[in-house]
């Protein structure tokens, strides 16, 4: 598959390209970025002497079969729609767009032009995802009582610009940008979140800390769920499902493991499930999945419609936003 990349900033160079060069099915033929330093670094760091370089997406015509869109979220919809209209299949980075309305336009464009549109929610490719789904749906932990999901660590992501923070280019921070992975995983497991209450620590800029509470409908019952997101401190970084007989938990940093705690004969026991062998690179699995969908004209693992569900939760949360209490900030002596 001849692949063009739109946006050669940090996520492309740190995450995508190391995976793409491992794949026998991918040939990176075009690099597009308005910042020439970014394309030059991508070419140099990943030894892509034959890849062409441009600042304009239209130059891809006739030279690529598919494209990865890794530009700031504000440009996801216009760039993706332009590529789809050119007859190019697209893997668009998360969050799919700034709004569900934009995401719908993208999905409609893909349908209209008969193209594949996949979304880069790579934690869906963690090895423990499907086993975890089976475990939480199994009587093993009993009736689900609560779902807790957290994503947080001190921001360490390498940034080549202020794009992460610039509200002209993105919608939010720890919740919108990194938190979308977690919201997507919860929605993928249990469906939509209702009765949303949301608070964050923004004072006009992008949030560093956020909390969401809501309800999931599991087996016809309302189950409370709470999610926390942080760019300033460590949280437990995973999903914990609390059942009447036990607890099942997955962690982002250990995508090969699942921990189950269950009371057996009145005594709590911890059961661990762990895959053998080195964990596969989820970015590699993601691009291989996309390449398969392109080749077979099939459905990618994460479609625009699927990505829209988590974006809808984020959208409703922002609409219900209340300021987070931060007495250490607000105090004015």
């Amino acid at each position: 598959m001849r692949l063009g990349i739109v946006g050669c900033g940090a996520v492309t160079r740190e995450m995508h390209l190391p995976a793409f060069i491992q794949s026998p099915n991918i040939e990176v033929t075009y690099l597009c970025d308005r910042v020439t330093k970014n394309t030059a670094l991508a070419k140099e760091e990943y030894v892509l002497p034959d890849a062409r370089v441009t600042a304009e997406v239209k130059d891809f015509a006739g030279h690529v079969d598919a494209a990865v869109v890794a530009v700031p979220p504000k440009f996801h919809a216009p760039v993706t729609c332009e590529l789809l209209a050119m007859g190019i299949d697209v893997l668009c980075e998360k969050p799919i767009a700034l709004s569900t309305a934009e995401a719908r336009l993208m999905s409609d464009a893909a349908r209209k032009h008969g193209r594949i549109l996949a979304v880069g929610l790579m934690t869906r490719f963690h090895r423990n995802t499907e086993v975890f789904r089976r475990i939480v749906n199994d009587p093993l932990i009993g009736e689900i009582q609560e779902v807790i999901a957290e994503a947080g660590s001190v921001m360490g992501w390498i940034m080549t610009s202020d794009a992460y923070f610039n509200k002209k280019l993105t919608l939010g921070g720890a919740f919108f940008d990194s938190g979308v992975h977690l919201v997507d995983r919860v929605v993928d497991l249990f469906g939509d979140v209702s009765d949303i209450a949301y608070e964050d620590d923004s004072f006009g800029g992008v949030e560093c800390n956020a909390n969401l509470t809501g309800k999931l409908t599991i087996a016809g019952r309302n189950v409370p769920c709470r999610m926390s997101f942080s760019w300033t401190h460590a949280l437990f970084n995973g999903i914990r499902v609390i059942g009447s007989n036990g607890t099942a938990e997955v962690k982002y940093l250990d995508p090969d493991a699942i921990a189950v705690t269950r009371t057996v004969g009145g005594e709590p026991l911890e059961l661990g499930v762990r895959y053998q062998g080195a964990a596969p690179n989820p970015y590699l699995l993601q691009i291989e999945d996309f390449a398969r969908a392109v080749r077979t004209r099939g459905t990618p693992k994460v479609t625009a419609e699927a990505a829209m569900l988590s974006l809808a939760v984020i959208e409703r949360a922002y609409a219900a936003r209340t300021p987070m209490k931060q007495p250490w900030v607000e105090v004015n002596r």
Binding site: M155, G173, E207, C208
Partner: peptide, 9 residues
């Protein structure tokens, strides 16, 4: 910019 998260908010 990696250290700018708190002033970004």
């Amino acid at each position: 910019y990696t250290h700018a998260t708190r002033i970004a908010r």
